[in-house]
């Protein structure tokens, strides 16, 4: 990008006033205020007294927050893992010169076009204990069939995982398929000449070569997992009890109905931690690769 020389132009600054306001006002000052309020005893309205780490102690002593954190791990690991594996399998199978590829792609991807509220409501209905999937199977004569995770405190989170995979695996598929197709066709010919079976070619040759697509899909999934809110509200409302609470739900609840802003801000600050970690890792990996590339050249 060295081709444009820096010239100062008032119109350019005026034209980008919205960008300046958003970058500084929202993403710097806004986050700073959130961080600051997490050290105060703000209730309904923001307060400006300093109470140290009290909100954080209270946060990590709260059952609801601990359930939220363990839920985000369960949900995150299972949906990200599920979406990556299922997405990769779909991409590989789609790559076999099949018929109706466009139709199948549309089918795998359409859930992503819909609101998470819609996804949540559809699966809430499909998993209805009395009238949903379970009862349909019973009517078909499979009397021992049991799949109504949403009504049980211990299994409700897995119901969310099913919906999460339904919604998100098509995206992974699309990104990974693009990654697969970006691999040089000579590689495939060479592998075939060497008599390597296709599954090994995919697993040990293609997979490492599509690192970029994998990283893309992975980061995309991570961001959407940390943000997951709509799906829970629509599907379980955080229940039964507190069993499907998640950090995003906890924060919104604290700043609205619970009127406990300080607590909500502490929780929000904690939500920022994994994102900053992830970005640092991505940044460091990218930087090291660049350094190595320069050393190699």
């Amino acid at each position: 990008m060295a081709r444009t020389r820096r010239r100062f132009n008032y119109s350019a600054v005026i034209g980008t006033i919205p960008m300046i306001l958003v970058a500084v006002g929202v993403f710097v000052i806004g986050i700073a205020f959130t961080f600051f309020w997490s050290f105060t005893s703000s209730k309904l309205f923001p307060a400006y007294d300093f109470v140290g780490l009290r909100q954080y102690y209270r946060l990590w002593a709260s059952d609801r927050w601990l359930v939220s954190v363990s839920n985000i791990w369960i949900y995150g690991l299972l949906t990200i893992g599920g979406n990556m594996v299922f997405g990769f399998l779909l991409a590989v199978f789609m790559d076999q010169k099949i018929h109706a590829e466009d139709l199948l792609r549309s089918i795998f991807l359409y859930p992503f076009a819909m609101s998470l509220i819609v996804t949540g409501l559809v699966w809430q209905w499909a998993l209805d204990p009395n009238l949903g999937l379970q009862s349909a199977m019973h009517h078909w004569g499979w009397a021992s069939f049991k799949f109504a995770p949403l009504v049980d405190v211990n299994t409700a989170i897995y119901g969310l995982v099913v919906a999460g995979i339904w919604q998100g695996s098509g995206v992974s598929m699309a990104i990974m398929l693009a990654g697969l197709r970006g691999i040089d066709s000579e590689i495939w010919k060479a592998a075939k000449v060497d008599g390597i079976p296709p599954w090994r070619t995919y697993l040990f040759i293609a997979l490492p070569m599509m690192r970029g697509a994998l990283a893309t899909a992975f980061v995309l999934q991570c961001v959407s997992v940390v943000r997951v809110y709509d799906l829970i509200i629509a599907m379980t409302g955080g229940g039964p009890g507190i069993s499907t609470n998640m950090p995003a739900v906890y924060v919104i609840d604290m700043i609205t109905s619970s009127q406990n802003v300080g607590q909500g801000m502490a929780a929000a600050t904690m939500m920022l931690v994994p994102i900053i970690l992830l970005l640092s890792i991505v940044g460091i990996v990218g930087w090291r690769r660049r350094v190595r590339a320069e050393a190699g050249a």
Binding site: G30, I31, R227, Y229, A248, M271
Partner: peptide
């Protein structure tokens, strides 16, 4: 995450 900037 949106939750971080919503209250400000």
């Amino acid at each position: 995450p949106y939750q971080v900037v919503i209250y400000p």
